[in-house]
Design a binder for these strands. Structure first.
Lengths: 142, 142
DNA sequence: GTGGCTGCAAACATTTTGCATAACT
DNA sequence: AGTTATGCAAAATGTTTGCAGCCAC
C-alpha cells in the first residue's frame, strides 16, 4: 500500500517549494488517462483556471523527473515528448498506429530482460524503455 | 544470404532517382559504427568530398525510412534523432549512461514479446523499440 | 525578509517547407 | 526534354534560458 504520491510532502522533503503551478501540473498529469504532451498539460491546467506558462510546465516536469515522480518518452510520433507519472512497477507501451491509442502493459518481460542482461553481460540496468507499435485488437479486426 | 542492400536498385525499382547526395548519405550511414545524427552524417558526407545540405540529408533519410531501409530512434539523449540501417533481425539498444556507448543486442526477447502480444492480446505488432539504459560492463566495474 | 519560482520574451536546436536551379533518366 | 531532387533560406516546432518581479517559507 502506498496510495497516491503526496506531491507537497515530497517537494518539501527535498527542499523544494510547493507552488500553485507545480500542484496544477501534477494534478493534470496524475489524472490524465493518456500520455500528455507539455502543450496538452498546459491546456488542461489552464482549463482548471490556473494560468501557467509553458516554460513553467517544462520546469515543473523536469523537477518531477529529477525527483523520480514522472517520466518522459518519445513515442512513435517523433515530435513532442509525452509525460506520465512514474509507476514503480515496470511496464511498457503499446501504441496503435491507426487510432493512436496508447495503453500500458505490465508484464514480466522487462524483469526477465533486466535479469538476463545483468547476469549474462554485466550490464547494470537503470532504465528500460519499450515501445511496441502496431494495431490494437479493435483496429486490427475492424 | 542477402548481402548488403543495393541502394541504387531499390531506388530505381520504386521509381526514385539515384543521386549523388542519396548515395553519399547511404554510404555514410551504412559504414557508421555508432548511430549517427543528421549533423554527424552531414559531416561524414562532407568529409567524403560530397557537399550535401542538411535538408537533403533529412529528405534522403526520410525516403530511406519509407523504403524500409533505415530507422530512427531517439535514444536517451532526448535531443536529436539517431539513424541506423534497418536490420531485418530484431535487436535492441543498450545505452551506457557513463561512456555514451550504444551497442546492439540481439535476443529472442523481442520475438517472445511479439508472440505473446499477438496471441494473448490480439495486438498486431509492426515494430518494437527497446532501449535499455544503464552502465556497461566496463563502466560498471571501473 | 529572502531566496527560490514564475512569467515573459528571446535564444536555441532540430526538422520541415517553398521555390528557383541543377541533375537524373 | 521532362521531372524529380537539390540547395538555400526562411519558417515551424519543441525546449531551454536570462532576467525582473512575486510568492512560499
Amino acid at each position: 500500500m502506498d496510495g497516491p504520491v503526496d506531491l507537497a510532502a515530497t517537494l518539501r522533503q527535498r527542499g523544494h517549494r510547493v507552488t500553485r503551478p507545480r500542484r496544477a501540473v501534477w494534478d493534470a498529469l496524475a489524472r490524465a488517462d493518456h500520455h500528455p504532451t507539455v502543450e496538452e498539460l498546459a491546456a488542461a491546467v489552464t482549463a482548471d483556471g490556473v494560468d501557467v506558462d509553458p516554460a513553467s510546465v517544462y520546469r515543473a516536469l523536469g523537477l518531477f523527473e529529477e525527483l523520480g515522480l514522472a517520466r518522459v518518452s518519445r513515442l512513435g510520433d517523433g515530435d513532442a515528448g509525452r509525460w506520465e507519472v512514474a509507476h514503480p512497477d515496470e511496464h511498457f507501451h503499446l501504441v496503435c498506429q491507426d487510432c493512436g491509442e496508447v495503453e500500458h502493459h505490465v508484464g514480466s518481460l522487462v524483469a526477465q530482460l533486466t535479469e538476463h542482461l545483468e547476469e549474462g553481460h554485466g550490464f547494470r540496468v537503470t532504465g528500460v524503455e519499450l515501445v511496441v507499435t502496431g494495431r490494437c485488437a479493435r483496429c486490427a479486426t475492424g
